[in-house]
């Protein structure tokens, strides 16, 4: 494969063409914060955590959706980017009702980890305290909108990998919600195959299996990519 040279965080690298900045960084051990990215799913650039500075481009670009190009000089950890990542993290927490102490994902939550990584010790913005439903109608799983960050990983896992298209998004602005079918209770969905991919794709405690309590949650988001790889195998 042809190689091109780029500079990321003052490190000169020879990398494959055709990959995204995020893929290159992951391969090269350069940490980039992400929330809506999940290996195996189409990247949408929604969480804005992976924004990087590229010399010669006057706006920040999301690493997950931007293809690397020759001679790019990329910076991933400038003071500005770190500051913005912390604000993003704060806005995630302030948007809905993330009460870690009563959450099933406490201690195993990507959102918590994001908070630690962005050194967010408190949230400077007023909490919005929206009224959010908890859908317990599915026999095995729960959807708790209080803990949803609208990364849409479940939507993409369901549509792109399972092909069921149970999940979608309704409303707009801060009132967006993930919905099952046409906003019917999850348990009454005619498209859901109960495959559980969304449970593993969900980075927080928004979708979780009913039979567990705090401390027992085990999510394996990597199974999405593994499944895709296994399907490619000629068995």
């Amino acid at each position: 494969m042809p190689k091109i040279s780029v500079t990321i965080d003052d490190k000169k690298l020879d990398v494959d063409v055709g990959k995204t900045i995020l893929e290159i960084c992951k391969e090269s051990g350069i940490e980039i914060l992400t929330m809506c990215h999940l290996k195996g799913l189409t990247d949408v650039g929604a969480c804005r955590l992976c924004l990087v500075e590229i010399e010669g481009i006057n706006k920040l670009l999301s690493a997950c959706t931007t293809k690397i190009a020759a001679n790019m000089i990329i910076r991933t950890k400038t003071e500005k980017i770190k500051r913005y990542q912390r604000i993003t993290s704060e806005l995630f927490f302030a948007e809905r009702n993330h009460v870690c102490s009563v959450c099933v994902a406490n201690g195993k939550c990507d959102l918590q980890k994001l908070g630690y990584k962005t050194e967010m010790d408190h949230i400077r913005y007023p909490y919005l305290f929206p009224e959010c439903n908890v859908d317990t109608s599915h026999p095995w799983y729960v959807l708790d909108h209080n803990r949803c960050i609208m990364c849409t990983r479940c939507v993409r896992a369901c549509g792109e990998v399972e092909g069921a298209h149970n999940w979608n998004v309704m409303n707009r602005g801060y009132q967006v919600r993930v919905i099952s079918d046409f906003d019917t209770p999850w348990g009454e969905s005619v498209t859901c195959t109960s495959c559980g991919k969304c449970v593993h794709a969900c980075p927080t405690g928004a979708i979780w299996p009913k039979a567990i309590v705090q401390g027992q949650l085990e999510k394996k988001p990597e199974i999405i990519a593994e499944l895709i790889e296994k399907r490619k195998m000629n068995l």
Partner: peptide
């Protein structure tokens, strides 16, 4: 010094804020 989640985020005590 704000000690604990209730002082920092309102935590469980804030769960009545939606009502």
């Amino acid at each position: 010094v704000a000690l604990g989640d209730c002082a920092v985020t309102s935590n469980i005590t804030g769960m009545r804020n939606y009502f």
